[in-house]
Amino acid sequence: MRIKLISIFVDDQDKALRFYTDTLGFRKKQDFPVGGARWISVTSPEGPEDLELVLEPNGHPAASAYQSALLKDGIPCTAFESMAIHDEVRRLKAKGVVFTMEPTAAGKVTIAIFSDTCGNLIQIYQQ
């Protein structure tokens, strides 16, 4: 058994695909229609090659409630690792990404938090 998929809820799958590919720079791996929504996954060009992030619709009331409760309290729903967090933040800001936390040193890691435009906060960190 191994970890192959990680999924996050998004409020609009089209918008999410645009943000995660055009802005963050991930690559579209799968995108096909199912049951009124789509199965969309992306991978990072920095690897691991086969670890997919699924952009899941938040249609169920519990999913949107979960999203907005975390967002309101400023809690990120997941975290991505960066090898050069300061460059990454500069690159993303130039593309209009809004940060709720500037790169901040916290012990052995530096963390920053941004809005993914789909109702989530995402943390990036460098160890």
């Binding site: 907005s68 967002l71 309101k72 400023g74 800001k93 130039a94 593309k95 209009g96 990404v97 809004v98 940060f99 709720t100 936390m101 500037e102």
Partner: peptide, 24 residues
């Protein structure tokens, strides 16, 4: 446009939690 958007960035970061909460 990007220049304008990045200035909104600072606003959210500075006002931080309260600004985000109000926006939510």
């Amino acid at each position: 446009v990007r220049f304008m958007r990045s200035s909104y960035n600072d606003q959210i970061t500075r006002g931080n939690r309260r600004a985000l909460l109000r926006l939510c």
